[in-house]
Nucleic acid binder design. Structure first.
Lengths: 208, 208
DNA sequence: AGGCACCTCAGACTTTTGGCTGATACCTCG
DNA sequence: CGAGGTATCAGCCAAAAGTCTGAGGTGCCT
């Protein structure tokens, strides 16, 4: 079997070296490159054509992980991308998977889990940490369950194209409260603008 | 045949009395109530349960015609609503029909046209003044024809939830130009925010 | 040549959104 | 009773969106 080439993209040196050392214990895995920023990661991916790119999501200024994933997939659709990060917010998970990540690992994952994720990724299998998987499943099965009744109500009106002021009037709450609800909705849907939220919500309606 | 009960909602007294007198010439039509504002109209509609509500679109402060129509349809989905107004802008027509109006009459419509609109409305037929009908047909048949190729392209990307900046980058044009296109698109779709534009566009996609 | 539709852009200005922090109140579950 | 989830609201600030006016360039049709 060919050895698996891996590119590490993470802004923390310690994480990179730790991961590198860990992966070095596996005879079938080679870390062939490292990068500290999204830009460097893209560059390195182009030059090295690794089998798997392991990438952090949060990487200081410049391109963030999500965008890096999107570009990578555009440039090299067949390259497997593993997200390797600290946090497991709903939004990040959905966005990363949406952007084209093959797997989603938390940094406290067990070594065996990491190895199998790398091996699985090259075979087209997607592997994710247990807590991540359960969240994602919940999202996919019925994302609305994550929205509170009030939030769902707001979202429904939102898809009518109403403004915050109008939403407030319609629901007899202040604009401030509308904003609060919206912020929660955006986080749960994995978007950051009302435009995207509407797009997601309406398209999902149609799928039912 | 039962007589048709009509509620008039218009902020101009002269219009109401004129219309009332006109309708009084018809043996099968009864004007059972009048209202001068959107709020009063809703109230009266609840109390009187008329067969047909004839409503102006522009009605000073408070609830406007469009909103009144939406609420009426929510409260009494089976009640026929006729818009009776002075203007025939594309935007108003689309929004009114969208909100659930059964017909759309201009105030300079011929008496016979008005009578037949009222009678048609209770039978579920929708009647509109000729100039209105032609505009609406154009819109409905293929609204995209009204959009220039560039605008359609923009709209399509808009429904992905992109920001003006992103739209500009994607299309290799400045943000200023994006704004210009958007303003045109809003006018043609009869909306005034990107949120509403997205809602309209995506829902229309689904209908095809 | 002139008119017309379309695409492009700028600057200035107002309104709307969104992010952040923090706060109160209610309810339910353990 | 305390913890957590939900719903409500405020104030501040930065960014984005939207409006208006004006304008230059292209290409097409008459």
């Amino acid at each position: 079997m060919n050895r698996i080439s891996v590119l590490l993209v993470d802004d923390h040196l310690v994480v990179r070296s730790g991961l590198k050392a860990l992966l070095a214990t596996q005879p079938d895995i080679d870390v062939i490159g490292e990068a500290a920023t999204g830009e460097e990661g893209l560059q390195a991916a182009r030059e090295l054509s690794p089998d798997v790119v392991m990438m952090d999501l949060a990487m200081g200024p410049g391109i963030d992980g999500i965008e890096a994933i999107q570009r990578l997939r555009q440039a090299k659709p067949r390259q497997a991308i593993l997200v390797f990060t600290t946090y497991d917010s709903d939004a990040d998970i959905v966005r990363a998977v949406d952007a084209g990540a093959m797997g989603y690992l938390l940094k406290d994952a067990a070594p065996e889990e990491i190895f199998s994720a790398v091996r699985g990724a090259v075979q087209g299998r997607s592997v994710m940490s247990a807590p991540v998987a359960s969240r994602l499943f919940q999202q996919l099965r019925n994302p609305d369950e994550l929205l509170t009744p009030r939030e769902a109500e707001l979202l429904s009106l939102l898809t009518q194209g109403l403004s915050n002021r109008e939403l407030g009037k319609r629901l007899f709450i202040s604009e401030a409260t509308v904003k609060t609800h919206l912020a929660h909705i955006y986080a749960k849907l994995g978007v950051e603008t009302r435009a995207a939220a509407i797009a997601v919500a309406i398209r999902r309606e149609g799928m039912r």
